[in-house]
Design a protein around this nucleic acid. Structure first.
Length: 556
RNA sequence: UGGGGCGUCGCCAAGCGGUAAGGCAUCGGAUUUUGAUUCCGACAUACCCAGGUUCGAAUCCUGGCGCCCCAGCCA
């Protein structure tokens, strides 16, 4: 990450850590990003990644990448790999500090034994159903399990048998012995271990009992001497439980700090739903450019720096927040406006013939790659008698504020000449098919000598030189600001979230656009070369984001 | 009617007793061979409400109201 881009806006966590350091409560800062490898990372995770890695960097500490892989039924190596790729891409490096909850299974098992011996944990043999009934409700206390008072010896034996695979799934569970009447339901003898005869992606069949997240997470942090354990608000109720385990075990105590998770308008953020979108094929995969996943955004053409900028801009707080999509899009534009090479591309071609331009002549016009950054160099644009312009840039009967082409009107061709529309060829339905224009040869790199003003500038390509391309125009995946406000979020899916244009013509210099390279197609938006181009042997561009368009806004 | 949180401009968000930062959005206007960028300017007598303390409160106290989370052998 570029250090010059860290504006470090104030937030309560940064303040709190600074205080801990200042008053000597902590001597160093260790944070961690702890994903479960059961899906791909999304923009909400980016908020947590930027926070954890950012804070560690700011305070000269370190940030671990730790996989919370305690549920083998949902986790896969594919997700581990994808998550590592995404964290790296976002710009963060965990160095040597890559950890897995599964590496701590033996330690966690010993911790469990310690609590059983202290008579702070017991094996419960109720069914899941009975356990639920006996847990009580939000307003009524729970009732003790009939197995709650088993002897330490019996608990030790049963737990041992659980571990050895003597019992089927669901027959027993190890529970913490805390308080069945606690107003905080998390403290009503929570499960610590369950029997799961499932193959784990890293430990294989070594274990058939697996620790619950609640019995694992806090101890994992403790083992890694995480000083500030940053998580989302829903775990606040669990904090007393984590503190209880740490205290009873007598081990290093991290401090948990909760913040509000990110909600982004017009999208969903739950991994369950994202997985469903993939499996039900509402999108083409986890990296579909419409997905709020990091891999999707990457493929869409969002720069990692834009996402980091976004995470900084939205701040960190404790109130449930919904961020408008425009904030993200603005970050993307800000980044790309600076870095993206400019190019000319026509989505819906309308032929233009420059009648006064020699048919055998071709001029190679030098055009800047970035008008505000001459240091980025230039490229050559072929100018010839036959061109294509955007169909939208011509109107038979244009209103006066339409600064583009119409019968008898003049317009500047970007980087080239001013032309005037003299005649129009039409099809049987009366639609313009070819515009016959004349070129003012004195206007290359110059304004008309007679002082007349030509307000509009439009993009164009040479008909003979331009390359055909597919362009995928992406729009928001959902048409509701909050998809969950629908009975089923799938009902809020935007049927027009993808429009594929097969008629596009792009300037020849784009022939070797490498997948992932993002350009500004002038006047249209930012477009990123898609990796499918390689397999389909055809140029394919994904629209990353449009340019701001005050004209469209004015049109309504 | 249990427990835990949260309430400052349309959306985020600073502020932590001394008289409302910033960003996005919106609306004006200037420059412009991208109706882009850039640049200027406007945008909360007001901080959920009602009382109270104080010379002074968004900041402290009391009482309301509203919203979010928790009853997985998920994380």
């Amino acid at each position: 990450m570029n250090p010059s881009e860290t504006p470090a806006s104030a937030n309560f966590i940064r303040t709190l850590i600074a205080e801990d350091l200042a008053n000597g409560r902590r001597q160093n800062v260790v944070t961690r990003f702890p994903p479960e490898p059961n899906g791909y990372l999304h923009i909400g995770h980016a908020k947590s990644i930027c926070l954890n890695f950012g804070l560690a960097a700011e305070f000269g500490g370190r940030c671990h990448l730790r996989f919370d892989d305690t549920n083998p039924t949902k986790e896969e190596q594919e997700y581990v790999d994808a998550i590592k790729t995404d964290v790296n891409w976002l710009g963060f490096d965990w160095g040597e500090h890559l950890y897995f909850a599964s590496d701590y299974f033996e330690t966690l098992y010993q911790y469990a034994l310690q609590l059983i011996r202290a008579n702070k944990a017991y094996v419960d043999s109720q069914s899941a159903d009975e356990m639920r009934k006996n847990r009580g409700t939000l307003t009524e206390p729970g009732t003790a399990s009939p197995f709650r008072n088993r002897s330490v010896e019996e608990n030790l034996t049963l737990f041992e048998q659980m571990k050895n695979g003597d019992f089927p799934d669901g027959s027993h569970v190890l529970r913490a012995k805390i308080d069945m009447a606690a107003p905080n339901i998390t403290l009503r003898d929570p499960a610590m271990y369950r029997i799961l005869h499932a193959k784990h992606h890293r430990t294989g069949d070594s274990w058939c009992i697996y620790p619950m997240y609640d019995f694992a997470h806090g101890q994992e942090d403790s083992i890694e001497t995480v000083t500030h354990s940053i998580c989302t608000l829903e775990f606040e109720d669990h904090r007393p439980l984590y503190d209880w385990f740490i205290r009873e075990l007598g081990i290093f105590a991290p401090q948990q700090i909760e913040f509000a998770r990110l909600n982004l308008s017009y999208t969903v953020m739950s991994k369950r739903k994202l997985l469903q979108l993939v499996t039900e094929q509402h999108v083409t995969g986890w990296d579909d450019p419409r997905m709020p996943t990091l891999s999707g955004m990457r493929r869409r053409g969002y720069p990692a720096a834009a996402i980091r900028r976004f995470c900084d801009r939205i701040g960190v707080g404790r109130s449930a927040s919904w961020i408008e999509l425009s904030v993200l899009e603005d970050c993307v534009r800000e980044e790309l406006n600076d870095s993206a090479p400019r190019a000319l591309a026509v989505l819906q071609p309308l032929k233009v013939v420059i009648d006064n331009y020699p048919a055998d002549r071709i001029e190679w016009i030098e055009a800047p790659i970035h008008p505000q950054k001459p240091e980025m160099g230039t490229r050559k644009l072929p100018f010839a008698r036959e061109l294509y312009i955007e169909a939208d840039d011509y109107m038979d009967e244009p209103p006066k504020k339409f600064f583009r082409l119409g019968p008898g009107r003049e317009v500047r061709l970007r980087n080239a000449y001013i032309i005037r529309c003299d005649n129009v060829e039409r099809d049987a339905a009366g639609n313009a098919t070819v515009l016959h224009c004349s070129c003012d040869f004195d206007t290359l790199g110059a304004n008309p000598a007679d002082g007349r003003k030509v307000k509009g500038t439009i993009h164009w390509v040479s008909a003979a030189h331009a390359l055909p391309a597919d362009v995928r125009l992406y729009d928001r995946l959902f048409s509701l600001e909050n998809p969950d406000s629908a009975d089923d979020y799938r009902q809020a899916l935007n049927p027009d979230s993808l429009q594929t244009i097969t008629t596009a013509r792009v300037e020849a210099s784009l022939a070797d656009a490498t997948p992932g390279a993002t350009y500004q197609f002038e006047r249209l938006g930012y477009f990123s070369a898609d990796r499918d181009a390689t397999s389909e042997n055809r140029l394919i561009f994904n629209r990353t984001v449009t340019l701001r368009d005050s004209w469209a806004k004015e049109q309504g």
